[in-house]
Nucleic acid binder design. Structure first.
Length: 304
DNA sequence: CTAGGATCCTGTCAGC
DNA sequence: TGCTGACAGGATCCTA
């Protein structure tokens, strides 16, 4: 197929590159320059499952703010309503010109795949928001993500948001230690993946943060000492900050300078999807196993 | 209450 | 070559 840069792209399957906090933050920043103050002219729901709420209530409204809570993207409208978007594993937010074609303003973020590079809508497009001068496409291959319409003032009462834990940056040592004590018999990886405990950490950054803290993902939460707890908070902050700086999984990080497709994980990953390769810290071979029901990458030598 | 397994869904890939 | 089944995973629901 021919890509937007005029070169040929090879098909490349991204296993497990799911949107987490850094991806949603990158989308939030990207959309701010593109859709703020724009009016929603029409909404097309192509998959009922992907859209919750009343569509008519958001028609002819203006986008006044774009926020993020954990992995949830929040788009506030000027009539007291908001859109809550959760990308789950395969969700994407794609902005295109009003005919769906890729132009200089094109933007895409979330689960990186071919849809970043082709005209919209695609077979994975579930909801289209036609705006003044552009189209905002919610794509989601596996249909686990969703768009939800709700009153802005009711966001805090929404089930997912209400139960959301703090993000690593606002979580202090004592609070985190208390959480680990509460779940002392669960795997540490399961604890930091649970959005009720810490907001925003998904499978990629859980593995990366545990590597940073030199903690084996199978360890029980109650077994971590104070130094490890401190390092783990630092790790969660650090790996996600680094990913946000590098642009998360967006079109810009997906298409390399020569027009071929790259892996945005290359920008920061120390262990994720590096099984069989050498640990950057100690040289041992990175392994993959199953922890907390998830594919888990770790260094068997330096993660104790 | 907690911990852990099943579930949703589509696409990929190994194995025959 | 084409089919089949295993696998991937965020958050929720269910079970013990």
């Amino acid at each position: 197929m021919s890509g937007p840069l005029g070169s040929r792209h090879f098909l490349w399957y991204n296993k497990g590159n799911m949107p987490e906090l850094p991806e949603v933050e990158t989308i939030r920043r990207g959309l701010k320059d593109l859709i703020l103050n724009k009016k929603i002219i029409q909404v097309e729901i192509l998959e009922l499952k992907s859209f919750n709420g009343e569509k008519d209530v958001i028609l002819s409204t203006k986008i006044v703010q774009i926020r993020r809570k954990g992995k949830a993207l929040l788009i506030d409208l000027d009539n007291g309503y908001s859109l809550m978007i959760h990308l789950r594993m395969t969700g994407q937010i794609i902005y295109r010109a009003s005919n769906g074609e890729i132009d200089k303003d094109a933007f895409a973020g979330g689960h990186p795949n071919q849809d970043f590079l082709i005209n919209m809508p695609s077979k994975h497009t579930r909801v289209i928001f036609w705006l003044e001068g552009g189209g905002l496409f919610f794509n989601d291959q596996r249909k686990f993500g969703f768009v939800k319409v709700l009153k802005t003032e009711e966001i805090e009462k929404e089930d997912f948001i209400k139960k959301l834990g703090k993000e690593p940056w606002s979580l202090n040592f004592d609070e985190f230690k208390k959480i680990l004590k509460k779940h002392e018999k669960a795997n540490i990886k399961a604890v930091i993946l649970d959005q009720h405990n810490v907001a925003g950490v998904g499978n990629i950054y859980a593995d990366e943060a545990l590597f940073y803290a030199k903690v084996n993902p199978d360890r029980l939460a109650g077994s971590l000492n104070d130094t490890e707890i401190k390092e783990l908070i630092e790790g969660m902050r650090s790996v996600m900050e680094k990913s946000i700086e590098s642009g998360g999984s967006t079109m810009a990080t997906y298409v390399k300078a020569d027009g071929s497709l790259g892996n945005y994980l290359d920008n920061f990953a120390q262990v994720f999807q590096r099984q069989g390769q050498k640990c950057f810290r100690c040289g041992a071979i990175i392994e993959k196993k199953r922890t907390a029901g998830r594919g888990t990458h770790f260094c068997p030598r330096c993660q104790k």
